[in-house]
Design a binder for these strands. Structure first.
Length: 217
DNA sequence: ATCCCGAGGG
DNA sequence: CCCTCTGGAT
């Protein structure tokens, strides 16, 4: 009964949504590239707001890689507890800090392979840090971008790595970062996971996932 | 009760 | 590819 629409071209989606989300800076609070890296690692399965609640105390005690590299696990665990996955996150940010100090002279590296070698840093975190700190292009596939790209038919997959490749292939490199940030915002606030606000979405008319009276995956 | 601004391990 | 890790939001 539902008419199946073809997927919208990625550049067309970006053209329509871009004016609606002019402010594309991260909602995370940080005072340096290292602090951003830590904040992004902490944001896994957690809201930015919750991360921003714990980072002031964390960064007051451990402002840089040097300081965090010498931290005690139990102290860091207590500080990041409310962000969830606290054991792994605490262990990972300490180990990453140690690796940054010992292998990269205390500065966050910009090479993709170097970032991916840091414990707790995957493609999403690496692409975001490269984008914000170094102005390098990358598709930042978080759960929001993954969901909206799937719904729009731009990247019909649940595999983030595959999604990243599909989106990258459908856009010129100079639009990668902008696409990531605009789609993240739109997915977070309009094309939401639980109850998408299709009535307020300028793409609804051409979206393969829009159903009569809303309601869908 | 179920889901969520990831990554690592089996 | 699947599973697990966690607290907080809904």
């Amino acid at each position: 009964m539902r008419t199946q629409l073809p997927p919208m071209p990625a550049d067309e989606v970006l053209t329509i949504l871009s004016p609606l989300w002019p402010d594309h800076r991260s909602a995370l609070n940080y005072g340096s590239c290292f602090q951003l890296l830590v904040a992004v690692v902490l944001s896994a399965q957690c809201t930015d707001e919750q991360v921003n609640r714990v980072t002031p105390a964390l960064f007051a005690i451990y402002p840089d890689a040097q300081a965090l590299a010498g931290a005690r696990l139990s102290d860091v665990e207590r500080l990041v507890h409310s962000t969830g996955f606290y054991h792994a996150k605490a262990r990972n940010i300490i180990a990453s800090a140690q690796q940054i100090v010992h292998s990269y002279g205390g500065a966050v590296p910009e090479a993709m392979e170097a970032l991916l070698s840091l414990p707790g840093v995957g493609r999403k975190t690496a692409n975001l840090v490269r984008s914000v700190c170094f102005g390098l292009p990358g598709i930042i596939v978080d759960t929001h971008v993954l969901r909206i790209a799937r719904r729009l038919g731009i990247a019909p997959t649940d595999d983030p790595a595959k999604s990243e490749r599909m989106i990258a292939a459908s856009l010129p490199q100079e639009q990668w970062t902008r696409f990531s940030n605009v789609l993240n915002r739109h997915a977070k606030y309009v094309c939401t996971a639980r109850k998408p606000h299709c009535a307020e979405c300028p793409l609804a008319m051409n979206c393969p996932s829009t159903q009569p009276f809303d309601q869908h995956r």
